[in-house]
Design a protein around this nucleic acid. Sequence first.
RNA 1: CGGGACGUGGCGCAGCUUGGUAGCGCACCCGCUUUGGGAGCGGGGGGUCGCAGGUUCAAAUCCUGUCGUCCCGACCA
Length: 510
Amino acid sequence: MIGPGAPSPGPPPVGRIAETGRPRTGALRPNARGAHLVESLTMAKVLTPQSEDFPRWYQDVVAKAQLAENGPAKGQQVIRPSGFALWERMVDEMDARIKETGTENASFPLLIPESYFHREADHVEGFAPEVWMVTHGGGKELEEPLAVRPTSETIIGEYMAKWVKSYRDLPLQLNQWCNVMRYELRTRLFLRSSEFLWQEGHTVHSTYEEAHEFTLRILHDVYADFMETVLAMPVLRGIKTEAERFAGALNTFGCEALMRDGKALQMGTSHELGQNFSQAFDIQYLGSDGQQHHGWTTSWGTSTRMVGGLIMGHGDDSGLRVPPRLAPVQAHVMVVKDSDEVHSAARKVYEELKGDGVRTRLDTRGDVAFGRRAVDAELRGYPVRVEIGPRDLKNGEATLVRRIGGTKESVPLGMIAEAVATALDADQQSLYDEALERREALTADVSTVAEAIEVGQTGVARIPWEACGLDGEAEAAESGVTVRVLQRPDGTVPDGLDEAGLIAYLSRAY
RNA sequence: CGGGACGUGGCGCAGCUUGGUAGCGCACCCGCUUUGGGAGCGGGGGGUCGCAGGUUCAAAUCCUGUCGUCCCGACCA
C-alpha cells in the first residue's frame, strides 16, 4: 500500500511535521476534572508521512479520506461526497458573507462568444493559453467559436452594460457560484484542475474610491474573515505585484495561507478593474451631473482550491483535521460494541448533540471493526469522536476523543454535550493558533534577494520591496520563489503598488 | 510545453533483462468466530497486462506511436 516513496525533494520542511506523526502513547492518569485522560494510542499508519513525501501524503489523504479522484480526461476531478461536503460548508459560510455585503447571486452562461474576450487586450492575452473553445454544435462548425468560461468578466460586463443606465442603478453587485474551465498543463486534485467550482463576484461602482473600497471589503470582511474564523487559517493579505496581477486588472489583492510544507497557497483574490472593462464593454451611467460616465468594476473569486488549502494547512500524518466551525461532521458518535444498551445510550447522546445544533453523525456499524471505524474518522478529520462501549457505560461515561489535540478522556454521560461544545470551541482556536505559530516560525526577515531565495525555499521571507524590486522578483522566480503579496510595514494592505516603503513576502507557492 | 519516472483485477505491486496461455498483498463476496485502534480461519468472484500499430509460430515481455498519471521547471484559482 505504501510504497518506498521518492526521496524528499528538498530539505525536510520543518521539525514539527515529523513530530505530529510520532506515535503517542500514554498511561491512564487522572484529569483535573476527575476523569481519566489518556493520550492517543499509536495510530495505524495508513498515509505516507508528511516528512517523508508531502505531495505523496496529500494524494494519500485525498484518496483514503475519499475526497476526490481523477476524471477520465486530463486534469478532470471527481469530487466525492466527503470532499464535496467540505466545499458545501465553505459555500454556506461564504455565501452568507457575500450577501452581507449587499451582493446578489445570479447565473450567466457557461459558453461565451470568443469575440467578447478580444475586447479587453490584456484579458484576452492573459487567458488565451487556458481557454477551452467549443467549435462545433449540432454536428456543424459554429460561425463563431464559443469559449468555455475561464472566468466571466466579459459576459457579465456585457450584461452590466445593459442593466446600468443611471447612477441610481449603482452599485451593481453580482455573484455567481459555478464551474469554470481552464486548460492546465500540470494538474493536482483541488489545487489545479481543468474544471473547478468557484464563486466569482462582479460589481460596478460609480467612483474609483467606492470600487477600491469594495475590493478591499471583500478581501477583509468576506475572504480573510472566512478563512481565519471558519477555516482557522491565518492569511497574509496584501497587494499582488504586477507579475501576479489578474489579466486586465488595475490591482489585484490576495489572501495567502501557508501550507504545512512551507509553501504558500493563494486562497482568494479580489481585483479592482478600474475602467478597463467598463470601457471595453461600454458600461456607462448617466450621473446626477447629466453626463455619461464609465463605471468602475471589481471582480473577486475563491474556489474549490480552498479545500486543498484546508487539507495541506491543517492535515497531519493521520489525515485531515477539519476546524469545528467548518466540519460537516463535528461530532462522530460511535458505538464500540454491539449491544442494545450501547445502542440506546449512543442514540441518546446523538439526539442530544443534534438537539444542541452540533452536526453529528451516529456510527452504529456492527460489522466493521472498531479500529477501522476509528481510523476512518481520523482520516476524515472529524473534530471530536464520542465512543460508547460497555466499559464506558459501566461507569456511566463515554470516551471523548479529540482529533485536533489528539487526546482521549472519559466524561460522564450527563456532561458529554457540554464537553463536546467546549472541545469544539477550544479546538477551533488551537488549530488557528497552531497554524499561526507555524507560520511565524517559518517566516524570517531578510535584507537581500539571495537570502530571500534561501528562506523562501522552505518558508516565508520578508524583505523591503525596495531591496527586492522587479529584478529581485525575477531572480527569485528563477529559483521557484515568488513574491506572494506586498504589505505596508504595519501589516495593512496598500492602496496601490506605488506606495513607498512596502514589505514583500516571498516563498514558494502552489 | 521542456526534463525525469511510471501505466499489469478497485488500490499497491511482482513478472519484462533471457517472448511460451498472468501472480501476490489489500479491498470485495459467502460461512463461522470476532468487534476498546485498520480482526482470524476457511471458501469464492474479478484482469484480452492504458490504447494503436509492428516484429514473431507465439508479445504483459521486443520495436514505434499515442493517451494518461506522478515529480521538477515555465503558466495559473
